[in-house]
Amino acid sequence: MDIYDILFWFLSALAVACALGVILSRNPVNSVMFLIVTFFAISGHYVLMNAQFLAIVNVIVYAGAIMVLFLFVIMLMNLNADVEPQKGQLVQLAGVISGGVLFLVILASIKTAKTEYMDKTATDIGLITNLGKVLFTKYVLPFEISSVLFLSAMIGAVVIGKKEDAKPPSKADEAEMKQFL
């Protein structure tokens, strides 16, 4: 057991424990915090594989941007354990079934996955130069298609977010505003 293994097991235990914390904690804000720690543990795994770029992008995008938006929504809705509506039994049953199906799929994919171990010491495929070269040569088409997908999602968000009944300020409003200026 060397330092690599120690870190690996520590990070794995942390990731699993915090992932359990996400679904088990009653308070949504605590769930978000657990999820952030989970992302950090996964970033730690990337660093162990010498994929520093992936690690830091994971932190910036997921922990730094997406989770902030999650927190935003939760804070504004002020969800609490007390006001959380109780779900009906049918919904609970549906949840159990769909969760079980997902679990089955993951199990099947793990069973058929190739168990190739990475060389611990000399891998620099995750460094930014190599990653950039691979992305812009071998996988350039999927890369560009996914960026088009993001663009369309962005435009969609702008269209949805646009107010339809935004009226220009009336004469009376303007007069009122001028008083303050």
């Binding site: 804000v29 520093q52 830091i56 910036i60 922990a63 730094g64």
Partner: peptide
């Protein structure tokens, strides 16, 4: 580290949490 600037960015984007959690 060979991602120096991105590390700075990561720290900056995490800096929001202190303010956000404290305020909430």
């Amino acid at each position: 580290i060979n991602i120096g600037i991105l590390f700075v960015f990561g720290a900056v984007s995490l800096g929001v949490y202190g303010v956000m959690l404290g305020g909430w």
